[in-house]
Simulated scan of single mutants.
Amino acid sequence: MTQFASLPWAAILFSALAMTLIVALRYLATSGLFAWITGRVRPGLYAGQDAQIRNEVRWSLASAAIYGLPAGVVAWGWQNRGWTRIYTDWSDWPLWYAPLSLMLYLLLHDTWFYWTHRWMHGPRGLRWGHALHHASKPPTAWAAMSFHPWEALSGALVIPLLTFVIPIHVGILGLVLTIMTVMGIANHMGWEMFSRRIVHGPLGKWLITASHHERHHREYRCNYGLYFRHWDRLCGTDRDPVDFSPRP
């Protein structure tokens, strides 16, 4: 208890606030970029959704604070106390471990997301807050972080907690966060950026894209995964992607 009380809480709070700012700016930059691309590739797709987009941005910025808090605490603990298993020297682990750690993080994050997301589609889960995310009809590139605070908290803890258990290079951790951000936005933007050959080919049988996640937003009771389709396939909740008429 004395050790806990002696922590420099001002420095930890500053780290959490700094990380919140980073997450918020990352959201505004990446969602803004994909929204701009949407305007160029699918002109008028978001017409009449201005009020919805404003709500998506407000809730997403609130989620940024919730994501930033544990991330800031972990960042401070890693740099100052060595709390985590994040490493910076590539020689600390064999090079073959780097892609393995990437897949471990993605698979475990996907597992957590599938089961919590599926629970959130029950009566209690929707009342718990997931209905807010589905209030975006249809979702836009700004909706990827538009969560009720309880749902945001459930998603904010996964990656920080994994850093205490599974070693990962800081660069690979950055790649995990990049994939999480890009897929979260791309899967909500209302059109398919991947070719038909990818979406309906062997790779698309295992990866989630906008065409796959769009069916979830239309039908609710299917396609719960985040990155991969294997849990949906194993549990009988996988449905074919919708046809966005992706580029050939």
Rank of each mutant, 00 (worst) to 15 (best):
W128R: 06
W128H: 05
W128A: 14
G129H: 06
G129P: 11
H130Y: 13
H130R: 06
H130G: 09
A131G: 13
L132K: 10
H133C: 11
H133F: 11
H133L: 07
A135I: 05
A135S: 15
A135M: 13
S136E: 10
K137N: 14
K137W: 07
P138I: 04
P139G: 04
P139R: 01
T140P: 09
A141C: 05
A141H: 02
A141Y: 02
A141G: 14
W142G: 06
W142F: 14
A143M: 13
A143S: 15
A143Q: 08
A144C: 15
S146W: 05
F147N: 12
H148K: 10
W150N: 15
W150Y: 15
W150L: 14
E151R: 04
E151A: 12
E151P: 09
E151C: 14
E151D: 15
L153V: 09
L153M: 15
L153C: 13
L153D: 13
S154P: 04
S154M: 13
S154H: 13
S154V: 12
G155L: 10
A156Q: 14
L157A: 12
L157M: 15
V158K: 02
V158T: 12
V158S: 10
I159D: 11
I159V: 15
P160Y: 05
P160D: 11
P160E: 07
P160A: 09
L161K: 03
L161I: 13
L161P: 11
L162W: 04
L162A: 04
T163L: 01
F164N: 05
V165A: 07
V165G: 03
V165R: 02
I168Y: 02
I168D: 05
I168C: 08
I168E: 07
H169M: 00
H169C: 01
V170R: 00
V170L: 03
G171M: 05
I172W: 01
I172T: 08
L173Y: 02
L173C: 03
G174A: 03
G174K: 00
L175A: 04
L175K: 01
L175T: 01
L175Y: 01
L175H: 01
L175C: 07
V176E: 02
V176C: 07
V176I: 11
L177W: 02
L177H: 02
T178D: 01
T178G: 00
T178W: 00
I179L: 14
I179D: 04
